[in-house]
Structures are given as C-alpha cells and as structure tokens.
Nucleic acid binder design. Structure first.
Lengths: 205, 205
DNA sequence: TTGACATATGACAACATGTCATGTTAAAAT
DNA sequence: ATTTTAACATGACATGTTGTCATATGTCAA
C-alpha cells in the first residue's frame, strides 16, 4: 500500500503519478517497467517516489487492488442475486470481469498483466482465491454464500476444491483470451462450454 | 538455445556453467537471478557468456528444456501403455512429473520455477500445451493418440478444450503443491479427486 | 522565535546488462 | 614453413537500473 504521505498529496498529483504508472505497466511487463520512466513522465523526483511507495511492486499491486475491489463487490452482489448458484455466479462474474478488463483504456494494460501473471499476482487480483493475504477473509465469506445442495460436496474441503478448480479455469481462460485477442463472443462461448464440462463431466455415460 | 560454441566446449565446462545457473535460479526468481553471479560462480568471463547464450532467458529456457524433453517422452510412453485413456495418462504423467521435480537436487529449483511461472514459461515446460513454439507439433501428435470413444467430444476443438482444461488444472495443482510443500501422498490424493470431478462432473444428479 | 515534525529532492553507491575492440589459438591454404 | 582465415576469449566500457541519505524546505504548535 502507498504511504499516508501519498494520500496527503493533491488528488491531481496522485492521478498524474498513477496515470504514468499505468502507462509504463501497459507497455512493459512488471519486471521490465522502469521506475525511472514513471517518475520522469510524472515529473516526480526520485526521492519523492520512495516517500509514496515502498517499491515498484507496492505501486503495481496498488493499481491491481482497485480492480480487485470492484471484482469483490460484483462477486457478492451476483451470488446474492443468484441465490448461491455457483455456476451462474461464475458465469456472470466472468462476463463482468471480461467487460471491465476490455474497456478501451484498460485493455492493453490487462493484456500485459495477464501475459505475465504468476501465482502471487493472481491472488492479489481475484477475491475468490484463497490467500494468506486476505484480511477480511473474503474467501471464507464467499464459500458461506454458496448453495451446496446441487453440488457434489460432503465437506468444506470439497467445496474449496471445486471453487479452486473454477477459479483456476477462469483465470486460464482469461489469460488465454487476452493473449490471442478473442472477441467477447468467442471467449464467452468458450467459457460456457467449459462450465458445462465442469458441471456434467467430460466422460461419456 | 545455446550457440554451437557452447556445445563445442569441454563437457566439464558446460556442466560447471549449467550447475552455477541452476544454483542461481534455485535461490532467485528468473528476474532477480544475476548473470553476474552465475559467471562469477562458474569463473566464466562476461564476454564468453554471451558467446554461449543470447541472454538470461536463453539459458533459463535451456535448463527447462531438459525437463520438457523428459516429460514429453514420458507422455507418449504412458499414453501408448494406457491405450489412449486420457485420464489414466494424466494421472500417471502427473505422478511422474511430481517424482521428477521432487528429486532432492531439483526440488528447490522447481519450487522457485513454479512460484514464478507465467504463461510463456508454462508452454516451454509442458509438452501437451498448445504452443506456437513447437517445431514437431507435439500437441497435435498427442491429440491423435487419445481414445475419444469415452469422451464427450464431437470435434477436434472439443478435444483441445478438454486437454487444455486438464493441463491447466494439472499445472495449477503442481504450482500449489510446491508452494505449500505438500507431501507426495497429499498432492496425489488431491489430484485424483480433481480428476474424478473432471470425469463425472461437479453437479449432483 | 523556536522547536518538532512531515515532506521534498537530487547526488550517489552499488549493481546489472550487452557490446566491442583487441587478443589468442588453431586449422587450412599457399 | 608461412600466411590467411575463421572461431573463440576476454575485460573494459557505455548505459541503464534501484534504493538511500544528507540536506533543504515548509508548517504547525508551544
């Protein structure tokens, strides 16, 4: 998280810095992104940057945090509306994530993010992922909202397993769709097919 | 790939360099690993390193390539033995991968690799993954070996989808198991449960 | 007016990478 | 035996990166 000092800055200046960061992270992977470049573009002296953020990762994860919060709100809103139906919830959440990440001014940024995402970054971006870094324990909260009656679950562990599989598949689909620039229609169709396979199984009966 | 010059080197010197690289990549992520450190440990002059490898990535992927080749051999051996049974093949391949990556002198290296793996590196490590960089088209060859009679597939696309899902799940399980240091028994049990869910579906009937 | 504290800032140390001019070696050609 | 040619070796160098720190500046309270 940024320091308090950062939040004391005039909103204008905050925006300038974040915008410069977005720009740099859009055209370079996290590792190749240069703090030098960001501070140059935002006209922030080097020393000041380190007053505001601990390091590059701190800044990067703060940018992702914004999206995570949105996804989290959506997740709980949708699962309430869908009365705990896990598959319906994932389908609607996925669509909402695709829409959000495909917005004109976001798309290239997320393409870059997804192309280089690793397991640490995953957890920072998606609320349904079990994670040690999860102060409110969103994960457990979410599990509690799921209607287990239609699922093959006996224990809490079983449920975690299923959610973990859905999450992994969702992310994989997202990453792939941004890598090959699928249209929304293509990726939704593909995602729905996968959900069907998950629901009913892959083996013929 | 390394240059010819590298392969002209005495086997001894090759080994020293690769061993130093393994060591560096075991204790640092790819991005944090330092060529400086590697050449220092291997007593190779800076200029020489660049005679042998194009850059750090070249060296890294060459190390992974060794494992990929082994996995590829295993894959085709197992699927032949299992007469095209996709789920049996994945189960046995997974066990073989876990065994290999858990070997005493490999374990920490792969823990590091998996902790930081991204979609590009995935493709370099696992033969069943569809990839532009796949000269022999291993992926297509593998699809051809699968017994489709027991699977819910109509088209080649359906099959690719299923294999993609299995692959993604496999990798995810592997990454997680190395991140939290599961025992072989734990990870195999978890993997088998997941395969069951994939086969028969998650929804109660 | 004077502390006390938060904030601003650029020079600097430490380290990384990739290149290149200059040697060296060895084999082939004369 | 001498010369030519090509492959290989090497470390200094240019250019970049990051995080810190001594010093300067502003601001509020005593």
């Amino acid at each position: 998280m940024p320091t308090q000092t950062f939040f004391h800055l005039p909103k204008e200046k905050q925006k300038t810095l974040l915008k410069a960061a977005m720009h740099e992270f859009t055209y370079h992977s996290f590792e190749n992104a240069s703090i030098n470049q960001i501070i140059k573009e935002a006209s922030i002296p080097r020393g000041s940057f380190y007053m505001y953020f601990h390091d590059k990762e701190d800044l990067y994860f703060y940018l992702l945090e914004q999206s995570r919060e949105l996804f989290e709100k959506q997740l709980f809103m949708i699962i309430a509306e869908e009365k705990g139906d896990l598959f319906q919830t994932f389908e609607r959440l996925f669509e909402s994530i695709v829409d959000y990440c495909s917005k004109k001014n976001h798309r290239l940024f997320f393409k870059q993010v997804f192309a280089n995402i690793n397991s640490r970054a995953e957890k920072r971006l998606f609320p349904m992922k079990k994670d040690v870094f999860d102060p409110q324990n969103t994960h457990k909260l979410f599990l509690g909202q799921i209607d287990k009656s239609k699922l093959k679950v006996q224990t809490e562990e079983d449920l975690e397993e299923i959610v973990g599989l859905l999450f992994g598949m969702t992310l994989h689909t997202l990453v792939h769709s941004f890598a090959v620039d699928e249209t929304k229609e293509e990726v939704m169709r593909s995602y729905q097919r996968k959900l069907e396979l998950f629901k009913y199984g892959m083996e013929k009966r």
